[in-house]
Design a protein around this nucleic acid. Structure first.
Lengths: 120, 120
DNA sequence: GAACTGTACTATTTAAATTAGTACACTTAT
DNA sequence: ATAAGTGTACTAATTTAAATAGTACAGTTC
């Protein structure tokens, strides 16, 4: 389901968060779909359950998943994102755009990438 | 010139790298423009010179600045970016686009942001 | 009731970041 | 030439964050 990179300087719980977030926003994990249990994923990745717990807790605080004690953790339905998330994404988008222009990448190339992922 | 956030979990040298990179790619620091000396910036930010040295060394390895012993460090001319940097940026761009779509942001809104930064 | 689930702790260990201190060769300007 | 400033290269110590280890409790599922 996920793969970790121990050479990466990013903390493990961060890599797990990013991986799960990516699966959720791309639809690889649909709304209300069940995630592996804290203990199952810890066992699968050969790391401590507390590390998974931390990743899940933060993903829940950010609105990407929800957890029910005794039942499990599930992918959230879209629209639960905290206010300011759009603005944060736009800010990061502008930074990337600035560097792409610095590297002489044209608007046409960039817009092509935007449209290549368009649904329908 | 830069401001640090000690509440941020990101390391200081990383915040410095990001801040300088942003200034360079946006043109706030023009080609061959001189950066503050390692010791001057360390004093200004009230941190250890080794931390600045690390940030500068990595920025040089990534092609954003160049350093001349005895003279100083300077913003690099564009085009020195390592191969694969474009692809890395496009990958990050796709991740942001996926999440923006998850939040029901339309292509039109995204493309508007792309074009708003177009030079000329 | 057995086996699972999320959650909440404390304590310990491990790894990374940061600081501290010193040193050397080079450049610049007095 | 001499003083001050520059990048760079080390080692050592300290501080901070991440990750592990262990235990426990209340809920659920069958």
């Amino acid at each position: 389901m996920l793969d970790l990179n121990y050479r990466d300087s990013r903390p493990i719980y961060g890599q797990i968060k990013d991986g799960l977030r990516k699966m959720i926003v791309t639809g690889a994990l649909g709304p209300d779909e069940k995630l592996p249990s804290v203990r199952a994923m810890a066992s699968q990745l050969a790391i401590n359950p507390n590390t998974i717990q931390r990743a899940y807790a933060e993903l829940e605080a950010e609105g990407f998943i929800y957890s029910v004690p005794g039942k499990g953790s599930f992918a959230a339905d879209r629209g639960q994102a905290p206010t300011g998330r759009r603005e944060e994404l736009f800010a990061r988008l502008r930074e990337i755009l600035a560097e792409l222009r610095y590297l002489n990448v044209s608007d046409e190339e960039i817009i092509a990438v935007v449209k290549e992922g368009t649904p329908q």
